[in-house]
């Protein structure tokens, strides 16, 4: 055992840690409650409007909106999940605990990546299963599942760095709400998921297309819907190559920038900060 490479050894511990955290999460009533809440909200909305037709497509609302909702939830989970986790674990000492052991931070981040990615699975399942039971014509062609897979993988790689960056930069977990939630909400609201992007001002349309959330939704729609539905999109096309380019581009930027931010954050961690954060949180509760 002593011949093992310490870095790979640490990453292995981290992956097992992520699996363990995932196991704890799905067994926790708090996390179960969150999954069920989002599922009820999403499926409930689709059910209430199950007979509405989406103009210009000849499709029912659940068919068009389900892929968009899935795309949004992935973006939301991949940003807010790591942002909160990092901000919290910076404060409670989890990060420092790992800083104190050899190659511990590599293990910690491998664990975060594993756990946060896995967390999206139950999120998808609780929405997909009831949706397929309740609504017809959701998946136009089975080959769409292949598209779903790569869109999700690329989408997570493109959006999770935002979450890690927010978690690394926010001064305290209480600030994740303002720093993290607001931009995500803004992007979500303008992502063309709730109403067509073409209704926005021209400049906003350009800005929104610079960020990954819109493309995640578009990619998901291209996976689920028949090709004829592309007419309702910008340019009347699924723009698959553009989707790969934008999501891939953000994934590359994330892979380059995130380690720098995380290293900077970890270097600044001290025990006194944890003490200060505890005092601050006590103050806040009062």
């Amino acid at each position: 055992m002593s011949a093992t490479n310490p870095v790979m050894h640490a990453v292995g511990i981290g992956v097992r840690r992520g699996l363990g955290e995932f196991g704890k999460s799905v067994r926790s009533t708090q996390d179960q409650g969150f999954y069920i809440f989002t599922a009820l909200a999403a499926v409930g909305y689709l059910y209430l409007r199950r007979d509405s037709e989406v103009e210009g497509t000849g499709l029912l609302l659940p068919s068009v909106t389900l892929p968009s909702i899935l795309g949004l939830l992935i973006a939301f989970g991949a940003v807010i999940g790591p942002a909160y986790a990092l901000a919290m674990e910076k404060e409670d000492g989890t990060l420092l605990r790992h800083k104190a052991v050899p190659h511990g931070l590599k293990g910690y981040f491998a664990g975060q990546l594993t756990f946060q990615s896995l967390s999206l699975v139950p999120q998808m399942v609780v929405i997909l299963v009831p949706s397929f039971l309740l609504f017809d014509d959701l998946m136009d062609h089975p080959s769409g599942w292949l598209t779903v897979t790569w869109v999700i993988v690329l989408g997570v790689l493109a959006t999770m760095p935002f979450g890690m960056a927010i978690g690394a930069l926010v001064p305290s977990s209480q600030k994740v709400g303002t720093w993290g939630m607001l931009p995500v909400m803004l992007l979500a609201g303008t992502s063309g998921i709730f109403y067509p992007l073409q209704r926005l001002w021209d400049w906003a349309e350009v800005v929104v297309q610079c960020f990954p959330v819109y493309w995640l939704g578009l990619g998901m729609r291209s996976a689920f819907l028949p090709d004829s539905a592309a007419d309702a999109e910008i340019g009347g096309s699924w723009r698959t190559w553009e989707t790969v380019a934008v999501l891939g581009g953000w994934a590359v930027v994330g892979a380059l920038v995130t380690p720098v931010l995380l290293r900077r954050m970890a270097r600044r961690q001290t025990g006194s900060q944890i003490e200060a954060a505890r005092d601050a949180s006590l103050q806040w509760v009062k």
């Binding site: 055992m1 002593s2 511990i13």
Partner: peptide
């Protein structure tokens, strides 16, 4: 788990 990180350093 935290102990595991030290295993490669066993002598």
């Amino acid at each position: 788990q935290l102990g595991e990180y030290y295993r490669p350093y066993s002598t």
